[in-house]
Amino acid sequence: MTAWLAIIAPAWIAGSILGLLSAPLGCLVLWRRMAFFADALAHGTLLGVGLAVWWQLPMGMGIVIVSIMVVAGLVLIDDERLPVDAVLAVVAVSLLCLGLLTLTQLTDQQANVLGFLFGNLLELDWADLPALMVSVLIGLAFLGYIWPAQLKLATHEALARIQGINPTRQRLFFMGVLAGFCAIALQAVGSLLISGLLVLPALTARLWSTAPKQMVVMSLIIAQVGVTLGVWGSVWIDIQTGLAIVLVLAILFFAALIASKFLQKQA
């Protein structure tokens, strides 16, 4: 048991730390209606990793480069004739294909592709936790700084403009936080599942909350439950840790949805 704990405990703590940022950020993603953008950015992390390995750069730098490319590309291809969600879906699948192509054809990372796609928290050890904690704290501090403006833009953009809030600048700030989260969440749940870790706790909390603060608190609790059950469950049934975490969060969402519908019928 002690040997297992030495392997699982760092992963469990790392996932719990990550949940501190994913929960409030996921709430903002829902409020700002940017779930498709988050998904596209998450898929872009795979291309960022591929470019970083190919160019022999730090992994985070590769992800930042791709994030900037995604934002610039979306500005360039913006067209009122095209639905935004459809454009983002095309961007997401294109980034995923390019990322897989780069990793498998231009680098020697073929054996690690599954880990990049679905994550592997169990590879983290105690030495990795301080850097992760610092990254999450920086993310939380910046999120706290932009939170009032983001909340106003999410609830009433016209009023926010009157109050002097610049929507474009705040959108870029928010995209920056999302890009940073994708970079640090890649090892936890992988490129394919980052958006699930972001959106599912917030979506579940939305079913039962009546105020923004309540939704954030409930999302935090749900994220921690999902990480705990996912990490320990992945070891128990021997599957990818990221898959297990997102699967648990999905089960919690559907259970909450069914329960809420049942209670509505009873009322």
Rank of each mutant, 00 (worst) to 15 (best):
I13W: 05
I13Q: 09
G26R: 02
C27W: 10
C27P: 08
C27E: 04
V29F: 00
F36W: 14
F37W: 12
G48K: 11
V49K: 13
A52T: 05
Q56V: 03
L57N: 05
M61H: 09
V64R: 05
I68G: 07
L74R: 10
L82N: 14
P83L: 05
A86T: 15
V93K: 00
S94C: 04
S94V: 07
S94E: 01
L96M: 09
L98M: 11
L103M: 10
D108C: 01
G115E: 12
F118I: 06
G119A: 09
L121Q: 14
L121Y: 10
L122Q: 14
D125T: 12
D125K: 11
W126G: 00
L129Q: 10
M133A: 13
S135C: 02
I138V: 10
W147Q: 06
A149M: 03
K152N: 03
L153W: 05
T155R: 04
R161D: 02
L172C: 01
F174L: 05
V177F: 00
F181R: 04
F181C: 00
A183K: 00
A185N: 15
L186W: 10
L192I: 10
G196S: 06
L198H: 12
L203P: 07
L207Q: 15
W208H: 15
M215G: 08
V216Q: 05
V217W: 14
S219G: 11
S219N: 10
I222P: 04
I222F: 09
L229Y: 11
S234W: 07
I237H: 01
T241P: 03
G242I: 08
V246P: 03
I258P: 00
F262R: 15
Q266H: 10
A267G: 15
